[in-house]
Design a binder for these strands. Structure first.
Lengths: 297, 297
DNA sequence: TAAAAATACTCCATAGGTATTTTAT
DNA sequence: ATAAAATACCTATGGAGTATTTTTA
């Protein structure tokens, strides 16, 4: 037994074509080396060497076996190394989902960071995903890491708050309030409001409605759109106003003013969520890096 | 140590996700199994399982390692099997050279036989090679087995007589002697003779010249050709007569008569030659089969 | 508390060492 | 005659067994 050791011995003997020298290289005596080779030959069922006292040479079967022996030893080392890299989170696949507003602020920095720190990890991004879509995608394993808005009410998922985004009113520059330094939600009650479609999927939809009800007014919803970029485009076209998280400022369209809302609770958290049970090292490392990144920004 | 055994244990534990059941399958007690897995993890430098008394599961690194562990064990078995097949002469490459006259009589049968008995051997043929060319090709390793005419005067080469071919006169049907049942060389003295080119490369060339000198006559050489088929074509065209080994009869061209020569030594041996030092099992097996084949024919 | 993995120890199989013999050039 | 592999025999490492403890769901 101990075939791997035998393979190692075999390779050295094959390279030296001399049991004595091979034993020296292996820091062992010659007789046990001869024995191990004999045992190997018996177990394989084939003569690997032709021996005389003056000359040792590989048989054709031995030549063939030598190639495979080297491959096998290399494969063992490679398997060890790979397992270590997996454990360190250096290799793996990571599909990251992201809500519209973080797509522009967080994703680029995260992408750069992951590319630099975990070059062996195959990262893919899916931007402009709605929060509820991402929760489903997490459970189904279509994404491994979600960047979304609360709430995350599911024990199988774990969420971590990355940062708190102020909410802004996006108004056309033609709007009567366009030049204000700040606004309250109640001041928007008289304007047409643009919101996200699919109230059950978009977290922002609920946040905005609650803001209005807290302010004691009802919104005048005129447009429902799929993506944040569409929403801002409609504002630029003067079709109404919208409530958006601060990072949306990155969409600096002509004719759009972003004005902070001063109301209590005029903010929304950005959280990172993943399967609670996960122990994927590369995901855990990515989470750590994400935490650092959020702290810096 | 004994990594291969550890890999085997590891695979079974990974399949069972239960040390007790795995130990049963391995016909051993649970404690030493736990120990070996612990040792493996220590040597690789990575936790392969997450354990609790109620649940054993692979870590991500363990999942990765499992794939490679299976591959490695399979590679060891495959290497053993392949070495055995090499030793049995079941795999290898075999380049066979052959003189013109045996190309038609021996090669087809040999090809069929090798294809049936040694399907794993990659056989290639080079027909219409001159004897001396083949000796050089053997020494240079361009061919492994030569089918040629004597002499083989080289200690590094070993030759085996396969059969003795009678020599025939190939004469045009318009020739005065075309209807004879048999001829002697001296009767050809007055006819134009077609021989092979390159007296130093073709063994037949020397054989024919010696026949004439033994008969006390000189040949009237009119044409020198490269291949036996060309030679017979010229005979068919009435350009002269030729002396050929009996298997050349396979070239049954219109207008050619083959007539046995009755002279002493009107025959030539066909021999198989190869490097004396060779121990390639597939070559040795091919030689055995060749011997049998020659005996049958 | 009960099932399962880990620990403690004991034993023995086998890898490795030393001394010697055999063999082929 | 001599260098080198094979054989014989001894030693000791470490793999496997039994009994027991620890752990957690």
């Amino acid at each position: 037994m101990d075939r791997l050791r035998q393979l190692h011995y075999f390779i050295v003997v094959a390279e030296e074509c001399h049991f004595g020298r091979a034993a020296q290289r292996l820091h062992m005596a010659q007789p046990p080396l001869s024995q191990q080779i004999r045992r190997l030959e018996k177990e394989v069922g084939v003569e690997l060497f032709t021996r005389s006292t003056r000359h040792v040479a590989l048989t054709p079967a031995g030549e063939d076996y030598l190639l495979h022996a080297r491959q096998i030893l290399a494969a063992v080392d490679a398997a060890d190394e790979r397992a270590r890299r997996v454990a360190m989170g250096m290799v793996g696949r990571l599909a990251i989902g992201c809500v519209g507003s973080a797509t522009y602020s967080l994703l680029p920095a995260l992408s750069r960071l992951l590319g630099r720190e975990l070059p062996g990890v195959d990262v893919s991004f899916q931007g402009e995903m709605l929060s509820q879509e991402q929760l489903t995608a997490l459970r189904q394993g279509r994404i491994d890491l979600a960047l979304l808005r609360p709430p995350v009410d599911d024990a199988t998922l774990t969420a971590m708050v990355l940062r708190r985004d102020r909410l802004l009113a996006a108004v056309p520059h033609t709007h009567p309030l366009a030049d204000r330094e700040e606004l309250s939600v109640s001041q928007l009650a008289g304007s047409d409001l643009i919101v996200h479609q699919a109230p059950r999927l978009s977290a922002m939809h609920g946040v905005v409605l609650r803001l209005f009800s807290d302010a004691g007014t009802a919104p005048r919803i005129r447009h429902e759109v799929g993506e944040t970029s569409t929403m801002v485009t409609l504002v630029a076209a003067g079709r109404g106003v919208a409530v958006v998280p601060e990072p949306t400022r990155a969409l600096a369209l002509e004719g759009v003013r972003y004005i902070p809302l001063i109301d209590e609770d005029a903010h929304v958290d950005l959280v990172a969520a993943h399967l609670t049970q996960t122990e994927e090292p590369h995901l855990l490392r990515a989470l750590e890096m994400l935490k650092d990144l959020a702290r810096q920004q």
